[in-house]
Amino acid sequence: MDNTEKKTISRKTLNKSFHHWFYGHLTVFSQEHMQTFGYLTSMLPIVEELYDNKEDQEKAMKTYTAFFNTEPQLGTVIVGVTASLEEARANHGNVDDTTINGLRAGLMGPIAGIGDSLVVGTLIPVILGIALGMSDGGSPLGAIFYIIVWNLLGYFGMRFAYFKGYELGDKAVGILVGAQGKAIRRAIATVGGMVVGGVAATWVTVKTSFKLTNSSGKAYLVLQDKLDSVYPGLLTALFIVACWWLMAKKNISPIKVMLILVVVALIGVLLGFFNPGLSY
């Protein structure tokens, strides 16, 4: 083969690959292969451009049949990185199946961790929080605000991640999982932790209606007030930590934890601990 000319992926093909990922990363989701097919459709334009003969194309595509799942927005960076690695492989660089898949497997965990606390835990609750305030009283303004802000940030953020990943190639790995990556993750986890705490205190309210009354009907112990005087939102915080403990320490699935909460709610209502005070 004649290899004097260095193969590069055209801007047009990179755009195509990005849009395939932007749209299709989860469309054919199953429990067995979550984002694998999204990845395949995203790599296909690149593989087709880099390799002329069918055999090489098939060999390259086989690489991406391995299981893939991460946080889809930030995970775009991984697709960008593999695009650059595939380009290196086509130019007979020191890259093979094992390199690419080792890198994908090594990145998808940490990226999911950062992505979940950054996108799902911080960005979306903050935009939603602002939007909810704007839509108070039935105004469509908040909903429209959310649609515009989130989609602009989502689209251009993902685009940036893709092209940054392509530009950095395997250097991205050092940034994402090396010492700097560790520092970035800790910084983001701190922001994520504090915002999640703020979200919990702002939007989650667990209140007890339990009180003790004396013979004349006057309440001498209102449990909710006592708890709040110790630490505002104490009961809410306790319930959250209990849910965390069940899931993280006892390995109980979220669905089972929800069912446990249904039982807790029923018992609480029967004992008079919970009373939402409803009426038609």
Partner: peptide, 24 residues
């Protein structure tokens, strides 16, 4: 109905706890 509403108030705790599981 009272149980249902109480569950509605407790459910977000699970969501928060899932996020915490990622961070803590």
């Amino acid at each position: 109905m009272k149980t249902l509403f109480t569950v509605g108030a407790l459910l977000p705790c699970v969501g928060i706890a899932i996020l915490l599981k990622q961070i803590v």
